[in-house]
Lab assay of single mutants.
Amino acid sequence: MTYKLILNGKTLKGETTTEAVDAATAEKVFKQYANDNGVDGEWTYDDATKAFTVTE
């Protein structure tokens, strides 16, 4: 299944996707991606759209 990450960081904005077996796996991938790019903020998840959002 495809999951999307929407980044609303102070220095990094954009979107990326990942293929994962479930939302928990996608969340781990996205949190590592955000951490690697220096984005740390409030996380939300919308199951209807399979989209995670992180806002700094």
Score class of each variant (00 low, 15 high):
residue 45 Y to N: 00
residue 31 K to G: 03
residue 2 T to Y: 10
residue 22 D to I: 02
residue 33 Y to T: 03
residue 1 M to R: 12
residue 17 T to R: 07
residue 35 N to K: 15
residue 17 T to E: 09
residue 18 T to A: 07
residue 36 D to A: 12
residue 31 K to V: 06
residue 28 K to G: 07
residue 42 E to Y: 12
residue 53 T to D: 02
residue 34 A to P: 01
residue 29 V to T: 10
residue 11 T to D: 11
residue 49 T to F: 07
residue 18 T to W: 08
residue 39 V to Q: 03
residue 25 T to Y: 07
residue 10 K to L: 15
residue 2 T to I: 14
residue 10 K to G: 08
residue 48 A to R: 11
residue 9 G to H: 07
residue 15 E to I: 14
residue 6 I to A: 03
residue 19 E to S: 10
residue 19 E to M: 13
residue 8 N to S: 08
residue 3 Y to T: 03
residue 19 E to G: 05
residue 37 N to C: 14
residue 12 L to P: 04
residue 40 D to L: 12
residue 10 K to M: 13
residue 21 V to A: 12
residue 20 A to T: 05
residue 43 W to Y: 02
residue 10 K to H: 13
residue 38 G to H: 09
residue 21 V to T: 11
residue 30 F to Y: 01
residue 52 F to K: 01
residue 28 K to R: 13
residue 20 A to E: 04
residue 4 K to V: 11
residue 30 F to Q: 00
residue 21 V to W: 12
residue 12 L to D: 05
residue 15 E to P: 03
residue 54 V to T: 02
residue 34 A to W: 03
residue 40 D to T: 14
residue 31 K to P: 01
residue 15 E to Y: 13
residue 23 A to H: 09
residue 43 W to S: 00
residue 47 D to G: 08
residue 36 D to K: 10
residue 49 T to V: 07
residue 47 D to H: 11
residue 31 K to L: 08
residue 3 Y to I: 04
residue 8 N to E: 08
residue 41 G to V: 02
residue 14 G to A: 12
residue 56 E to I: 10
residue 10 K to W: 10
residue 41 G to H: 01
residue 38 G to L: 06
residue 19 E to A: 07
residue 5 L to F: 05
residue 46 D to E: 05
residue 39 V to L: 11
residue 37 N to Q: 13
residue 21 V to I: 12
residue 22 D to W: 03
residue 9 G to S: 09
residue 44 T to V: 10
residue 8 N to M: 12
residue 47 D to A: 14
residue 1 M to F: 14
residue 52 F to T: 01
residue 31 K to D: 02
residue 36 D to P: 02
residue 40 D to N: 13
residue 45 Y to G: 00
residue 50 K to P: 02
residue 33 Y to C: 06
residue 13 K to Y: 11
residue 50 K to G: 06
residue 45 Y to K: 01
residue 18 T to Q: 05
residue 42 E to H: 12
residue 42 E to V: 14
residue 14 G to P: 06
residue 55 T to P: 01
residue 18 T to R: 05
residue 8 N to W: 12
residue 27 E to Q: 10
residue 25 T to M: 11
residue 7 L to P: 01
residue 28 K to L: 12
residue 4 K to A: 05
residue 50 K to L: 11
residue 35 N to R: 15
residue 26 A to L: 01
residue 45 Y to A: 00
residue 7 L to I: 15
residue 5 L to A: 02
residue 37 N to Y: 13
residue 20 A to D: 02
residue 41 G to S: 01
residue 1 M to A: 13
residue 9 G to T: 15
residue 16 T to M: 15
residue 38 G to K: 07
residue 25 T to N: 07
residue 4 K to D: 03
residue 26 A to C: 00
residue 24 A to H: 09
residue 34 A to V: 08
residue 37 N to V: 15
residue 4 K to N: 04
residue 30 F to W: 01
residue 30 F to A: 01
residue 28 K to S: 10
residue 37 N to E: 06
residue 17 T to G: 04
residue 7 L to Y: 10
residue 25 T to P: 01
residue 18 T to H: 07
residue 46 D to W: 03
residue 2 T to S: 07
residue 37 N to G: 05
residue 20 A to W: 02
residue 34 A to D: 00
residue 5 L to V: 04
residue 17 T to F: 14
residue 47 D to K: 08
residue 46 D to T: 04
residue 43 W to R: 00
residue 27 E to R: 08
residue 55 T to D: 06
residue 52 F to C: 00
residue 5 L to K: 01
residue 13 K to H: 11
residue 52 F to E: 00
residue 13 K to P: 05
residue 32 Q to R: 11
residue 23 A to L: 09
residue 33 Y to W: 14
residue 44 T to M: 08
residue 20 A to Y: 02
residue 23 A to T: 07
residue 25 T to W: 07
residue 37 N to M: 15
residue 41 G to D: 00
residue 5 L to I: 03
residue 4 K to S: 07
residue 16 T to I: 15
residue 19 E to H: 13
residue 46 D to F: 03
residue 51 A to N: 05
residue 9 G to W: 06
residue 37 N to T: 07
residue 34 A to G: 03
residue 28 K to Q: 11
residue 12 L to H: 11
residue 36 D to L: 12
residue 48 A to K: 12
residue 11 T to Q: 10
residue 44 T to S: 13
residue 56 E to G: 05
residue 27 E to I: 07
residue 49 T to W: 05
residue 40 D to Q: 13
residue 45 Y to P: 00
residue 16 T to K: 11
residue 21 V to D: 10
residue 49 T to N: 12
residue 34 A to K: 01
residue 14 G to T: 13
residue 54 V to L: 11
residue 24 A to N: 09
residue 20 A to S: 06
residue 5 L to S: 01
residue 3 Y to G: 03
residue 47 D to V: 10
residue 11 T to G: 09
residue 9 G to N: 04
residue 35 N to P: 01
residue 6 I to G: 02
residue 52 F to R: 00
residue 7 L to D: 01
residue 45 Y to H: 01
residue 23 A to N: 05
residue 27 E to G: 06
residue 48 A to V: 13
residue 5 L to E: 03
residue 8 N to V: 13
residue 53 T to R: 05
residue 50 K to Y: 08
residue 36 D to H: 07
residue 15 E to C: 15
residue 48 A to M: 11
residue 41 G to Q: 02
residue 5 L to P: 03
residue 19 E to R: 14
residue 2 T to A: 06
residue 39 V to I: 15
residue 16 T to F: 15
residue 31 K to A: 05
residue 21 V to G: 09
residue 38 G to W: 05
residue 32 Q to C: 06
residue 46 D to Q: 04
residue 53 T to Q: 05
residue 7 L to W: 11
residue 1 M to K: 13
residue 52 F to N: 00
residue 16 T to N: 05
residue 19 E to P: 05
residue 42 E to F: 13
residue 21 V to S: 11
residue 24 A to K: 11
residue 3 Y to E: 04
residue 36 D to W: 06
residue 54 V to Y: 03
residue 39 V to S: 02
residue 29 V to W: 14
residue 50 K to Q: 09
residue 7 L to T: 05
residue 23 A to Y: 12
residue 52 F to S: 00
residue 55 T to A: 05
residue 10 K to V: 13
residue 11 T to H: 14
residue 54 V to A: 02
residue 55 T to N: 09
residue 6 I to K: 05
residue 36 D to C: 10
residue 48 A to D: 11
residue 55 T to E: 06
residue 29 V to Q: 08
residue 38 G to C: 09
residue 51 A to T: 15
residue 33 Y to V: 05
residue 48 A to N: 11
residue 56 E to P: 06
residue 1 M to G: 12
residue 14 G to E: 09
residue 25 T to F: 07
residue 24 A to T: 09
residue 9 G to E: 03
residue 34 A to T: 07
residue 9 G to I: 08
residue 26 A to P: 00
residue 3 Y to P: 04
residue 49 T to P: 02
residue 2 T to E: 09
residue 7 L to H: 03
